[in-house]
């Protein structure tokens, strides 16, 4: 049996015949899964240890961070051909593309750095020292702010995308993993795997607005470990993968109350929806 660790996945389109693209960290490939048949329709070779993955705005390019090759590979999603590589700094993990469709923000996990590369000129435009083990990456919808979460420092670093400098640091609970802005940009949600919470930060003041905790009868509180999460269309709800609790929490994103827990497979790690178009999350787990 092949050992495949699924690291990251995303939908290539929100239409009914969509595709899910998944990086396989230990297999050096990207799998393309049809959302219609739920079968793997293509497998493309990548560089060593592919992890972070994101499409260009028009889905004409796929960016893949290859952590052991220390580059970002740029793939033509039509053919699966790697067209060229971008510099990334050491150990690139999660990546996110700025709305300007040019600046790629890269978390260099083993190097305590966030690297920003211009995908057109293929040059590094900034390297920012951040806390140890940067993991989560997000850019605000208006493009003015980028954030990196440092897993070991428990800090959310707020980066001004004009100056590419940190302008604020927010302390959150232990091991912040994933960060995402609401579509209107007013809130940043951050999951803390070991802290067991989601902290909601006000984008304007970078201060805590609310905190979400989880509780499932019969599940040890310490196993309620929020990791990946995603918003539903219109940001009415968030779906939160709870790792060792083997459940996905459905959180009302307006009242911040947990409305439901959905039993899924073991150690649920991340999830995505069909580009915010439906309420049904696709859930996957690592090996």
């Amino acid at each position: 049996m092949k050992l495949i660790k699924i690291f990251c996945l995303l939908f290539s389109s929100g239409a009914s015949a969509g595709e899910v693209w998944v990086t396989n960290e230990k297999d050096n490939t990207v799998s393309v899964i049809s959302t219609e048949t739920l079968e793997v329709v293509n497998t493309y070779a990548t560089g060593e240890r592919p992890r972070g993955i994101t499409f260009s705005e028009d889905f004409s390019r796929l960016y893949i961070s290859t952590s052991d090759r220390n580059v970002i590979q740029v793939m033509d999603p039509e053919t699966g051909e790697v067209l060229h590589e971008l510099p990334s700094g050491e150990d690139p993990g999660q990546i996110v593309l700025h709305p300007n469709n040019r600046h790629l923000y890269i978390a260099n996990e083993d190097d305590a750095t966030t690297t920003i590369v211009d995908v057109d000129t293929r040059e590094v435009i900034a390297r920012i020292s951040v806390g140890i083990e940067p993991e989560g990456m997000a850019v605000s919808p208006n493009g003015k702010v980028a954030v990196t979460t440092s897993e070991s420092a428990n800090i959310v670093h707020w980066i001004d995308t004009e100056t590419q400098e940190i302008f604020a640091n927010s302390l959150v609970d232990n091991r912040p993993r994933h960060a995402a802005f609401k579509a209107d940009g007013t809130e940043l949600w951050v999951s803390s795997e070991i802290g067991g919470t989601i902290t909601i930060l006000d984008t304007g003041s970078q201060t805590e607005k609310a905190k979400i905790e989880f509780e499932i009868p019969g599940v040890e509180p310490e196993f309620l470990m929020p990791v990946g999460f995603g918003f539903a269309k219109g940001d009415t709800h968030a779906f939160v993968a709870l790792s060792r609790a083997n459940h996905v929490a459905v959180v009302n994103a307006e009242t911040y109350l947990v409305e439901d827990y959905i039993l899924v497979g073991r150690r649920v790690w991340h999830l995505t929806g069909t580009a915010r178009f439906c309420l049904r999350p696709m859930v996957y787990r690592g090996t």
Binding site: S170, T197, E213
Partner: peptide, 11 residues
């Protein structure tokens, strides 16, 4: 769960 929260401006 940690109830404390703090924020420091980088400056």
């Amino acid at each position: 769960m940690v109830a404390l929260f703090a924020i420091w401006k980088a400056a």
